[in-house]
Amino acid sequence: MQHFQGTSKFGTEAKEILALIEAHAGSRTEELVSSLHELEDDDARAEDRLTAKQRLKNFLYYVGGQAGNLGTSLLQKYLELRLGLGGGS
């Protein structure tokens, strides 16, 4: 779904999360893609980025549980690093 505006600027990890969203999010696709954009936007409010990170992290836990570990732990680590939080939640 490269038709979502701005996804061409995503890095490798964000594109991997986008692919998981497209494959597994169903009716939540739009919400989660929006969250991914928010997380990637360094100018977004910190509170909004934290909320977006939590939505995406919950989604990755869900996907990891449903489809086995699809590298979701590495993508979860990426979410933490995007916010400068290191390895904590």
Rank of each mutant, 00 (worst) to 15 (best):
A23M: 13
D48W: 15
L81V: 13
G86M: 02
Y78M: 02
S8H: 12
T51Y: 00
E47W: 15
H3S: 15
L85Q: 11
Q54L: 08
L85C: 03
N69P: 02
T51W: 00
A25K: 03
H37V: 12
M1N: 03
T29P: 00
S34R: 14
L70P: 01
D43G: 04
L32N: 09
Q5C: 01
T51D: 09
L39M: 08
G26E: 11
G84N: 00
R82T: 04
Y61V: 13
G71I: 11
D48P: 02
R49F: 03
E16R: 12
G84M: 01
H24A: 11
I21S: 10
G86S: 06
G71N: 09
L79F: 13
T29A: 11
L81G: 05
L79K: 04
Y78V: 03
L83W: 10
S34H: 13
I21L: 10
G11N: 14
A67M: 08
Q66K: 06
K15S: 08
L50V: 09
R28G: 10
Y78G: 03
L83V: 07
H37W: 00
L75W: 01
G68R: 04
V33E: 03
L18F: 10
L81R: 10
G26L: 03
A46L: 14
F59I: 02
G88Y: 10
G11D: 15
K9W: 14
K53F: 00
T12S: 08
E38D: 09
Y62Q: 11
Y62E: 11
L74D: 07
R82Q: 12
L85D: 05
Y78R: 02
L39N: 08
T29K: 14
M1Y: 02
F59A: 03
G68Y: 06
L56G: 00
G64K: 05
T12E: 11
S27C: 05
E80N: 13
R49V: 00
I21Y: 15
S8Q: 12
Q66T: 07
R28C: 04
E38Q: 12
S35I: 11
A52K: 07
Q5L: 10
L85P: 01
Y62V: 06
Y62C: 04
I17N: 09
G6I: 09
L39I: 09
G65M: 02
Y62T: 07
G6S: 06
Q5Y: 08
F4W: 11
R28M: 12
A52S: 08
R82S: 02
I17H: 06
L32G: 11
R45A: 14
D42V: 15
E38V: 13
Q2T: 12
A14C: 02
S8D: 14
N58D: 15
F59E: 04
L60C: 00
K77R: 13
Y61Q: 08
G64R: 08
E31G: 01
A14Q: 07
H3R: 12
E38R: 07
L85T: 00
T29D: 06
I21N: 12
A25P: 01
G26M: 01
E16I: 05
N58Y: 04
N69L: 13
S35Q: 07
H3A: 15
G6Y: 14
G11C: 12
Q2W: 10
E22R: 15
G88H: 13
L81W: 13
K53Y: 05
Y78N: 05
E13D: 14
D42E: 15
S8M: 09
